[in-house]
Design a protein around this nucleic acid. Sequence first.
DNA 1: CGCACCATGTAATGCGTTACATGATTTT
DNA 2: AAAATCATGTAACGCATTACATGGTGCG
Lengths: 182, 182
Amino acid sequence: MSLKYTLLGFLNYQPMTGYELKQTMDISTSNFWHAKQSQIYTTLKKMEEKGLVMSDIEEQNGRPNRRVYKVTESGRAALQTWLKKPVMELQAHKELLLLKLFFSADQDKQALLTQLNWQRDLHQQRLAVYQGETKAVIEQFARMMPGGEQNAVLWNATRRFGVMFAQMSIKWLDETIKKIED
Amino acid sequence: MSLKYTLLGFLNYQPMTGYELKQTMDISTSNFWHAKQSQIYTTLKKMEEKGLVMSDIEEQNGRPNRRVYKVTESGRAALQTWLKKPVMELQAHKELLLLKLFFSADQDKQALLTQLNWQRDLHQQRLAVYQGETKAVIEQFARMMPGGEQNAVLWNATRRFGVMFAQMSIKWLDETIKKIED
DNA sequence: CGCACCATGTAATGCGTTACATGATTTT
DNA sequence: AAAATCATGTAACGCATTACATGGTGCG
């Protein structure tokens, strides 16, 4: 269960609500780790039961109270243990597009090509986000945080992975489209 | 639920047991779609209840009877419907390595580098598999099957994705290792 | 003699999504 | 006037893994 550690990681920067954690993930880790709002709330609840985090309620008028979470010592220790445990295997992936393609020998050629071109567009758009928005967010956070430069190196490495993955996908789609056209 | 369609796809080539379906997936789709033996068995059972497949038992002495599944007309129709529905979104991925890296600013540099080098080795090994074993399996299947050439084009496209992903990962790891070293 | 392969399944548990339920404030 | 944002949560369901349970055959 890695969502747990993602939340610990962010709360280790500063205390936040479940709502803010969702927003933070959406602009930072979402391209390699994402979660729905509901899962974040339920996970935080379980984490509090286990003593990894603690919450204080900030009362508000006219809208629901904010439940602000912070990491406990035990949570900090759990995060460190997890970070120090190296990833020794290749991770398995699921690629829906490849699965469909694999079984598509008898499908309409034109429909297939349309779909591949559509995917190409999506990767192109994503690429633009990485090179614009994502880059800006990293620079901004790095300026705000103490020790921001060291973080920025790693954050940019994850961004760079996104860029390279999108570029690779576009290249693969171009190749594949050509092969199918013959 | 795509495992269902994966199983229909293979059974559409020829009737098989759950055990054989697992083996088939392991040498063909496993790098973009995998499943555990137990999940395959339970999924086949549910599919039979819904009338997508039918099973016959082949009795054996000295070992468990083989339950051989075949697609029904309804199953064939479901497979076609699924294949014709285009993938319109980018798929979200989870990358454990990137997640850890993201939060690793305060971690030991050397441990980090060791881990990244280890991952590089794994990708290199995987690359060799794609270019040896996987290639051979595709050629063999394409020779055996009627209409094998059209299938081979698509199967090789999925293999090519694997190759390009591994190459991209190696390049990214090399870059990232260099950046962390400074 | 031990290990891998053949061959089936169930039960418990965990991870993740969708749907449900509520409602004021701010922006377009 | 409508839509997005802020803000919380629960319930039901589906997908996936791990562990449990069994046991003969064939190979080195």
